[in-house]
């Protein structure tokens, strides 16, 4: 196990290094950031000077080396637009994103588990077929479009929920969070529902498939033969074993939620890191894009590592080498 951890850890570092190279290469192709820095009426001399300060007069290799050593020292550069450290910008906006991502994840789990168990236990019933068709619709619709439809119905027409923005927040452990006040929570609902639909649909299908697989096993037949109550068989014996493979999709789920948060946040003007990324792309704010990518890569790599370790710990049949 220890050897496995070391091996995975080295892999993590390797992946992050590759990502840093890719990010650097891509950013080198996105045009010259000098013009973001200098005033419009700058002289050629001033432009030259700005290029020197940014290090753009050096070779790409030297530039990459500087980029990498800066990253390792925790210096991610300053935003061209906000004139403050890019990492700080990300960290300020992270709680807002985590809030909708986690709420969406909880909503998806709470709805998908019972529906998935039902559809897996009684696959022939009309209700199960309807659920499967519904989940296919959920996978097929563009999430951002659903968000717009929700805004139109619940914010513009019914005026039940606010259409955009984050509303009041309260500070806990240095993080600004919305869900603590009713008004803040009201702002959270539509974005979280929008974000959760795709994940909900996929989760339900996975749980259904796992349940159908598990319910075929001998120990389920045995539990039924022994006269255990149906509910007990389904949830205690069935669901418990069906949920284990779900751990492996946790990383993917989180990744998708964070990726789709860029769209959801854009629609609801939700001040998270996704909207920051989209805004930075519009503005050509290169340092912020770089930090976003490195941060998200770091997050995914760590989460995938934890998922693998957790899976190896929970299921002893998985051989870790």
């Amino acid at each position: 196990m220890f050897g496995y951890l070391i091996k995975r850890f080295i892999q993590m570092i390797f992946v992050l290094w590759i990502v840093s190279v890719l990010v650097f290469v891509m950013m080198s192709f996105t045009g010259d950031p000098t013009y973001m820095m200098v005033p419009l009426d700058a002289t050629d001399e001033q432009i030259e000077q700005a290029r020197r300060i940014l290090g753009l007069d050096q070779s790409h290799l030297v530039q990459y080396w500087r980029f990498l050593t800066n990253l390792l020292q925790g210096d991610f550069g300053r935003s061209f637009v906000f004139r403050q450290p890019a990492l700080q910008l990300i960290m300020e906006r992270l709680p807002a994103t985590l809030e909708i991502v986690f709420l969406a994840m909880i909503m998806a789990l709470v709805v998908a588990i019972p529906l998935g168990v039902y559809a897996g236990a009684y696959p022939q019933r009309a209700g199960s077929r309807a659920l499967m068709a519904g989940s296919l619709v959920g996978i097929s619709l563009p999430g951002f479009w659903l968000g717009m439809v929700l805004i139109f119905i619940f914010a513009v027409k019914l005026q039940m929920f606010p259409s955009s923005g984050r509303g009041p927040t309260e500070v806990i452990w240095g993080m600004r969070l919305s869900f603590l006040s009713w008004e803040g929570f009201r702002h959270l609902i539509l974005p979280a529902v929008t974000l959760s639909i795709g994940t909900l649909a996929i989760l339900m299908r996975i749980i259904r498939a796992e349940m159908m697989e598990v319910l075929r096993q001998d120990y389920i037949k045995f539990a039924r033969a022994k006269g255990a109550a149906n509910r007990f068989v389904l949830f205690k014996h069935g669901l418990k074993n069906a949920l284990i493979p779900l751990i492996t999709v946790f990383g993917l789920m989180l990744g998708d939620l964070i990726a789709f948060a860029t769209l959801t946040e854009t629609i609801f003007a939700w001040p998270g890191i996704g909207k920051l990324l989209v805004d930075s792309i519009y503005r050509g704010d290169r340092p912020v894009i770089v930090v976003y990518l490195m941060f998200v890569a770091f997050l995914f790599v760590v989460v995938n590592f934890l998922v693998d370790v957790a899976y190896a710990l929970i299921d002893p049949r998985i051989k870790v080498t």
Binding site: V15, M26, G251, L252, G255, D256, I258, A259, F260, T262, L263, L277, I281, I289, L293, V296, A297, F300, V301, N304
Partner: peptide, 10 residues
């Protein structure tokens, strides 16, 4: 290990 949408967006 990265979502397709995010890669395509970047």
């Amino acid at each position: 290990s990265f979502p397709s949408v995010l890669i395509a967006l970047v």
